[in-house]
Design a protein around this nucleic acid. Sequence first.
RNA 1: UGGGGAUUGGUCUAGCGGUAGGACAGCGGACUCUGGAUCCGUAGGCCCAGGUUCGAAUCCUGGAUCCCCAGCCA
Length: 559
Amino acid sequence: MTTHGTAAPTDFIRAIINEDLKTGKYGGRVHTRFPPEPNGYLHIGHAKSICLNFGIAAQYGGLCNLRFDDTNPVKEEEEYVESIIEDVRWLGFDWQDRLFYGSDYFEQMYEYAVQLIKAGKAYVDDLSADEVRQYRGTLIDPGRESPHRSRSVEENLDLFERMRAGEFADGSRVLRAKIDMSSPNLNMRDPAMYRILHAEHHRTGDRWCIYPMYDWAHGLEDSIEGITHSICTLEFEDHRPLYDWFLEELGVYHPQQIEFARLNLTYTIMSKRRLLQLVERGHVTGWDDPRMPTVSGLRRRGYTPESIRSFCERIGVAKTDSTIDVALLEHCIREDLNKRAPRVMGVLRPLRVVIDNYPEGQTEEVDAVNNPEDPDMGMRKVPFSRVLYIEQDDFREDPPDKFFRLAPGREVRLRYAYLITCVDVVKDERTGEVVELHCTYDPETRGGTTPDGRKVKGTIHWVSAAHALEAEVRLYDRLFTVEDPGDVADFESVLNPNSLETVTGCVESSLAGAAPGNRYQFERLGYFCVDSKDSSSGRLVFNRTVTLRDTWAKIEKKL
RNA sequence: UGGGGAUUGGUCUAGCGGUAGGACAGCGGACUCUGGAUCCGUAGGCCCAGGUUCGAAUCCUGGAUCCCCAGCCA
């Protein structure tokens, strides 16, 4: 893979690598890995880690493995493996032939465990989970040694072998490292290395009924793969001494663990457990619901891999707990789509407009620019006729100050078409709702120009009624109403009831063959993409990725 | 009150003894056939207290605050 973006910043991790390179610590090698557990879909926080690990490998001409940390069969599923592979690839990264699974090393890990038992550094404990907890002590009080701690090597070997053979029930025994029950670091108080789990593993089936714990397995996986810099999140800082202890006692290759702060985003929940809950309780339609911060959700929402990578680069890497303003993510997708998305006209909430002085039955085509940011994207023809739809928001019967759009007696420009003046307003007799406008057009202003030099402040978008394509448009907003839903005990109570509004609008005819996943800018509204699941040629469905910056909304708010 | 980490404008982030910089957000303006984009301008910060030094965000001492750890989860 190639390096994305411009010169990567030298954060504290790269500073460490630079130093290691200088001292030749790993013989000039840089080898990282992204080690997800396949128990959920990847989210934007994982994207940060992916960009970091793969980005560093690319930058230093090193390698980055994709490795599934699949040591807990009761939580992991093949579906998650597949989605993770798809997501990492979609983000633009490549692990070549280095797709690994922790479960590939189960036999090796078992042998290492036997080695530790033989060295008198591990023992089989018969205490129940509850007893183990009681023996562990507390944050301030030391723990007590298990009565089984001093079993002979032979007995431990025999017991461990029988654990593997399936002679014991789940939870009845565990293999523990023999370290220090009075360590102030609780992770060092004889942590469990293996637990008995008679569960079907998505890869190893029923070959095993004992499974390694993360702390035991993870460092071994890194060691076996020859990882140089084992990058993980802050909460594992306390585990590093244990990681180091295992590798030291085994006398095997020893990578260096470095911890950084995980990503938090305002108005967003990032915990897999909670995301799962949103899915299971039906608050969203699935892991790939466009409101989800998952990679698949962002993809379906219309985010580009480039925008996500750019975001991950901008947020930086440090050890400070931080919460990034979701506005930065939005900035990144606008920035990317502004340059690349073709412009198109679509009306979300149509208001019928009849051009009284335009010949009935006549149609003409006006020229429209596909992307003012990129002349290479060319021009297109847009049909114009007597009856149009404009945005309801673009008309006010009683326009406030600074409202430049249409109002009774007002003249505005129809983008790329003509200047029109509103001459009559038709309302529903019962509700008083404006249902139709009558306007006149100035034939001299074709293409939106004013031969007499007259200035028109407002330009609005429109779609010819006779040519319009009906489209379902899903208007997404943030999922939560508060900045930090993660701090709210019952985060479901703080869900935004208006996170999705579905409208039936109409779009210009050039969108007829719009392919799923295609992204467009609906002029003056925002960026939209064709929904990859629900859209078809017979029924167009668009997702709003993000609105355009809306200066008028700000002005109006202050009025 | 055990251990491990962290603390720079609203939010992120640079700085490594020598004028505190950038991004996003905010505010003001210019320009505009998208109230978009672009451009220009502007406000706002070193957790606190001592000390070392000609000079401290940076070094030292003490304190404060926040985060993580008592799964047979990762």
